[in-house]
Amino acid sequence: MIKAGIIGGAGYTGGELIRVLVNHPAVELAYIHSKSNAGNPVYKVHQDLVDEANLVFTDQYSDAIDVLFLCTGHGEARKFMEAQPVASHVKVIDLSNDFRLQHQSSIGDRQFVYGLPELQREEIRQASNIANPGCFATAIQLGLLPLAKAGLLDEIYTTGITGSTGAGQGLSTTSHFSWRANNIQAYKTLTHQHLGEIGQSLLQLQGDSDIDISFVPWRGDFTRGIFISSTVHCDLPKSTIDELYQEYYQEHPFTVFCDDAIFLKQVVNTNKCVVQVEKVGAKLVIHSAIDNLLKGASGQAVQNMNLMMGLDESLGLKLKAAAF
């Protein structure tokens, strides 16, 4: 059994990670760290886990594990790694944005590998430290990777809408029900923090510096999920584009290329990404949808753990969509 520890287990991503790991057939959850909840039963914070996880939050760290998940806020993972020596045998998977960009991907002797399996699965298998991708970044990249590999990207115009859980568990004006209900808003227009990792990955495949991506994210009136629409210029026939996507994703179990119109409920509560393309004239629109807490965070982290530990990539992640 793989022994796992979690730092920052009281938030949305920490809770989702616990839900997956307590049912993972190859994992023993050794401890769940939370300074603010030390001594409290886990189900007192994550009430849906009543009778599912007989665990208590702790404020103690231990190296008696095989893998450590960092579910801290952005900027806090690096601080933790600086303040707390982690034994060299412990593999680290960070769910924040602290190590995603290449110029920020190391700390001490640890070098982090960007953990998007559909981009670099073999590198993940050999890695000891993973920088888990961002939620918007995952959804956008999975819609564009086949085009980047074919060298077809130039200008990209992307919009995406996310549920309130994407803002984290701490309350703010725009995460309250009374604000979200019957409401929608653009935010961080053209400046979202995930743009750096998206551009880094696309250039890794396409190999030039001429990709220009404009991204407008939206806050949506729902709790979980991300729906992306990216528009690019493309002169190739749709049949050729379809073949590019089918070939690229044929060996990847969690990204599904669809002929029919996709929608958010196909992916909520799963580790899947569904992708669809539409073509009108020389304009190609790529739709992609994920659950921001699973494929966009904790599910992908477990997918990366499976790869790092030599397990089946899908182990513990065959989850059914909450369609109704």
Rank of each mutant, 00 (worst) to 15 (best):
M1H: 13
G11W: 07
T13H: 12
G15C: 11
R19V: 11
P25Y: 12
P25S: 15
V27Y: 07
E28T: 15
I32K: 00
N37G: 11
P41Y: 10
H46F: 10
N54H: 15
I65Y: 08
D66Q: 14
V67C: 15
C71R: 03
T72K: 03
M81R: 02
S88G: 08
H89Q: 12
N97V: 07
D98R: 03
F99M: 07
L101S: 05
Q102S: 05
Q104V: 05
Q104M: 10
S105Y: 02
S105G: 12
Q111N: 14
S128Y: 13
S128R: 15
S128A: 14
N132K: 12
A150G: 00
L153Q: 04
E155D: 10
G160N: 03
T165G: 09
G170A: 15
S172W: 07
S172T: 06
T174C: 07
R180E: 10
H194R: 07
E197T: 04
G207F: 02
D212M: 07
R219G: 02
R219D: 00
T223Y: 07
T223I: 09
G225C: 09
G225W: 02
I226M: 04
S229C: 13
L236R: 09
K238V: 10
K238R: 12
D242H: 04
E243M: 08
E243F: 03
L244V: 02
Q250Y: 04
Q250P: 05
N269Q: 09
K272N: 12
V274S: 03
A282D: 13
L284A: 02
V285Q: 08
V285M: 12
G296K: 05
G299Q: 06
G299M: 00
M309S: 03
M309Y: 07
F324C: 10
F324E: 13
